[in-house]
């Protein structure tokens, strides 16, 4: 029963990881920008939601504010930080360092405006109830699954059906093709950032209610997103999402056998196994760039 219980909380964690990881994978796949500040987007969205609920706004309004903040922040970074560096043939690591600077800035801004203490939203949704003997499930579990499924279905439809979606998928592979279609690579890159950042919002909002937030909350989510994008296969959204789910489950299940301090490391063991034995990931095509 313990394993079943852990599986349940692993799926809940994993569903939220899946969304954030898919956001990173979408941005990285389309633009090849190593958006290390994706975790900062997550933190900002979470805090925006907390801010809204402290103002007394309702859940949907709070979610909308979080969405606006996340998308705005993503677009701002793309235009003000990444694009200027890329114009200079910016090295991979130059972008990494710049993004890391952004992470530090965001963290200190949050500390200055919200304090360093832990903040959380109190809601009956996160209270677990015994649904089977020994198995406790909170309503937020179903919510996480429903939200994740809805988002993925609509994202899939968008990418497969719309011109912009197809353009996004083509962006990394064949920029010339884009021009032929009359699509602007710059606009698509902004779109990738807007969509990718939006994908961090559900995880952040539900995270504010389940685990709570602290100014450094984005770091872990960021590392999981990175690992998931490799395990899933770079550029594959489906892969990143599935890998995010997998990493969430592994992280939680490992507690049944080992000290909890190993739970984060366990995710990275999975990562190594993939890099060594299946570097193309779950769905990736090729290793080469």
């Amino acid at each position: 029963m313990l394993v079943l219980q852990l599986l349940v909380s692993g799926i809940e964690t994993g569903a939220l990881y899946a969304l954030t990881a898919a956001g990173f994978a979408l941005i990285f796949g389309a633009t090849r920008i190593f958006h290390f500040a994706h975790g900062a987007t997550y933190a900002l969205a979470g805090y925006a939601f907390v801010f809204a609920s402290r103002l007394g706004l309702t859940w949907p309004l709070g979610g909308l504010l979080a969405l606006l903040v996340a998308v705005g922040f993503g677009l701002f970074l793309e235009a003000a930080v990444y694009r200027p560096i890329q114009r200079h043939h910016g090295a991979f690591f130059t972008i990494f360092v710049a993004a890391f600077g952004v992470v530090i800035v965001v963290q200190s801004l949050i500390e200055l405006s919200f304090g360093r203490a832990f903040v959380a939203i109190s809601t009956p949704l996160t209270r677990a109830h015994e649904i089977l003997p020994g198995l406790y499930i909170a309503r937020v579990f179903w919510l996480a699954i429903v939200v994740a499924s809805l988002v993925f279905v609509s994202l899939g439809a968008f990418l497969a059906r719309t011109r912009a979606g197809i353009g996004l998928r083509a962006l990394s592979e064949n920029p010339d093709l884009l021009r032929a279609f009359g699509l602007s690579a710059r606009r698509l890159s902004a779109l990738a950032f807007a969509l990718g950042s939006a994908l961090a919002v559900p995880g952040a909002v539900l995270g504010a209610a389940t685990t709570g937030l602290s100014p450094a909350v984005g770091a872990h989510v960021m590392l999981i997103s990175l690992a998931a994008s490799v395990v899933g296969g770079i550029g594959s959204l489906r892969g990143a999402a599935l890998a995010g789910l997998l990493l969430g489950i592994v992280e939680t299940l490992v507690v049944a056998f080992l000290d909890t301090q190993w739970s984060e490391a366990a995710g990275f063991v999975v990562l190594f196994v993939f890099i060594l034995f299946r570097p193309s990931g779950l769905f990736g095509a090729a290793v080469a760039r």
Binding site: V81, H89, G90, F100, G101, L112
Partner: peptide
């Protein structure tokens, strides 16, 4: 927090204006 803020900002700005 303020020291951190300036420190992070300097890191980012340096990379934007001196990417090499």
């Amino acid at each position: 927090a303020v020291q951190q803020l300036i420190y992070g900002l300097a890191m980012t700005l340096l990379m934007i204006f001196r990417p090499a």
